[in-house]
Design a protein around this nucleic acid. Structure first.
Lengths: 132, 132
DNA sequence: CGGCATCCTCTTAGATACTG
DNA sequence: CAGTATCTAAGAGGATGCCG
């Protein structure tokens, strides 16, 4: 909570980049899976259908670097690595859940709107609005 | 609000793609600029530093197609085009603002965490945690 | 002014193979 | 198991030029 505040509408605003990270497709899903406690690498991979091992590693590293996820390595053979949300990471859950909830509840509207839009490639005259 | 609910953790879930769209870097900023009412194309472009005309057009088209933004063309010379949030688009503002607020308020923590992380490339023994 | 089309570049991410 | 490394394909996105 620094007194200095950034402007996301400025090109060089670091907050803009952070926004990119947390809005990232995989970040949203990963943080979502970790809401019930620590998970092993493989467990996360299995829960998020379609994520590649590379993207999972990469995204987890980024989250760890940002202090949002804590990585715990148990030096065994075979190795066991657990990931859990940090306190800061837990505060991120609420906004992300809200976003996810919005997407779910507006999915059908959006789908309908797309169909309408795609169907009418041609328009009329007068001030043309995209939606009546 | 259909009774059918999807699972974002499934690879083929359409909600997942919608989540991608609304989490998009430009979408967040564009929806943010439109919170005070309609804006012309050029006005939006001027407010969002660093956006190219191509990405602005493209993102606005997507939002229009999804029924989140309404495009109004006034057939004048030179043409005048205004964009405004639809009712559905306005409901998106709250979650996006929450996300933006989160990013702003946690920026300094994240920056600090990154520095710490980058500084210590080497680790110790025992169960190794990313953060004490 | 607001855009579309084209070109071209640079980043991403998926697949694959190998390692401690 | 949990990665790292490498290659390649696909797409994001910028620059430019033309048009209604």
């Amino acid at each position: 909570m620094s007194t200095e505040d950034w402007d996301v509408y400025d090109r060089n605003c670091p907050t803009r980049r952070l926004l990119d990270r947390i809005g990232d497709r995989w970040t949203v899903l990963i943080v979502g899976t970790l809401d019930r406690g620590p998970l092993r690498f493989g467990e996360i991979a299995r829960r998020i259908d379609g994520i590649s091992q590379k993207m999972l590693t990469q995204t987890l590293r980024g989250l760890e670097r940002d202090g949002l996820v804590i990585r715990t390595l148990y030096p065994q053979v075979p190795p066991r690595v657990e990931y859990e949300l940090s306190p800061a990471g837990r505060t991120l859950q609420e906004p992300l859940r809200a976003l996810e909830a919005w997407a779910e509840s507006h999915m059908s509207d959006v789908l309908e709107s797309r169909e309408l839009y795609d169907r009418s490639a041609s328009g009329a005259c007068g001030p043309v609005r995209s939606r009546a």
